[in-house]
Nucleic acid binder design. Sequence first.
RNA 1: GUGGUUGUAGCUCAGUUGGUUAGAGCAUCAGAUUGUGGUUCUGAGGGUCGUGGGUUCAAAUCCCAUCUGCCACCCCA
Length: 467
Amino acid sequence: MKPSIPKGTRDFSPQEMVKRNYIFDTIRQVYQGHGYQPIETPAMENLETLMGKYGEEGDRLIFKILNSGNYLEGLPDDLSFTTYPLAQLTKHISEKALRYDLTVPFARYVVQHRNDITFPFKRYQIQPVWRADRPQKGRYREFYQCDADVIGSDSLLNEVELIQIIDEVFTKLGVPVIIKINNRKILQGIAEYIGKPDRMIDIATALDKLDKIGTEGVRDELRQKGFSKEQIEKLEGLILSQNDYSKSGHSQVALLRIQRENFINTNSEVIKLGADELHYIKSMFNSLHPPMYSKIQVDPSLARGLNYYTGTIIEVKVDNTKSASQFTSSICGGGRYDDLTGIFGLPNVSGVGISFGADRIYDVMEELKLFPPQFITSTKVLFINFGEEAKHCFPLLKELRKAGINSELYPDAAKIKKQMDYANGKQIAYVAFLGAEEVKKGIVKLKNMVTGEEKEVATGDLIQHIQ
RNA sequence: GUGGUUGUAGCUCAGUUGGUUAGAGCAUCAGAUUGUGGUUCUGAGGGUCGUGGGUUCAAAUCCCAUCUGCCACCCCA
């Protein structure tokens, strides 16, 4: 049998893991610094918990788990695979699924453990999620999300904090980014304003493509989705004010002002609320000292596909004006959801959160060569194995490790050359010789593998000679 | 889910209009003074040419299907 792994999944080598852990550790450290606490949830959830939370497209991308045992039991006798509706069939043969994100399982967790939680509850969670998407560059079927959410607080200061966290993480990692924000209330209000309150998602996803396909493309898409000419014109009056947004040349602030004037004319409370929220957040950052390293941008076309967002939405992309990155997809996203816990029986609890896509961040950092070089190895000192004398290494190894110096003993009494090759392969900085001669003299011969320099040091002074 | 593209040794790739036993470099392993590597020399192992069919006297090469990677759409981290 030829060994292989499922499409869109990957193995990670030691070299890759060191770098991946660097990303995880950085994010974890920032989260903890802001008072977020860790939780974990199972890889699989009840299918029912997940279905219907991510939109139609999302449902399709959920990995369903076939029931154990005789999963065909209890199916109708007249079952025909060609005529039976697939969604119906799924319900019968699958009751569990791999989690699609960390936010919905978190909402479930909050409701289930509500009596043990003090609100507002700030938690972080770093775990893999699975999506049955078709793989591409930066798109995997198994990938890690690093989430932080605050649940049980309406304050916009949470949004402000989360955006600062985003800035802090990417500053630490050295990735130049643009943080884009918008507000779903505006989009919802617009949908109501043009008389299609239930089509907010369609409007949002069409607008989301403004950058890519331009005004005319958005018009076409809306027409295809059944919007009338009047509705589209009304919409344009609000969002696409003046020509093409992307070509308009207005600064972000100016653009926002245009919107607010237009928005006020709609007399829509929802729109005004959304615009005020956006403006509040933006103004917080305008007066922030010291200012953020990352650019923050109000983007009226930002939509985000997930169904559960109701307020602020956030998306982070690599700043291609500051780097040579080819990456255009988002590497972090998030937003506010006013009633995600409601579906699980706990209404009126608002939450807001963000999620870093660790795998995409890794790809970007690799592309931009942002990983520090010292990450190649994890062992600092290798003791050469001379057979009988090997046991004399143990006390020294213990001491080194106590001092935080990663060290190891070669397991076999192999030829020196082979052991040296091993050290080179792992890019180990020092090799220690402790053979019969050294034991007799009470010393260790320490060799610097970069300079080739060798010196005899007393066993007690070993640590001082290692940087 | 739709459309396109790709696949030869662990890695990077050669391989003529279909024509003997499919090659190279790097890597690996073994040896060249039995306590000194990253430079050198010698040798070895390793491929059902992604997989399964088909056309042909003959297929890595042509045709079909399938899988994987990649690209666009869709959507997203």
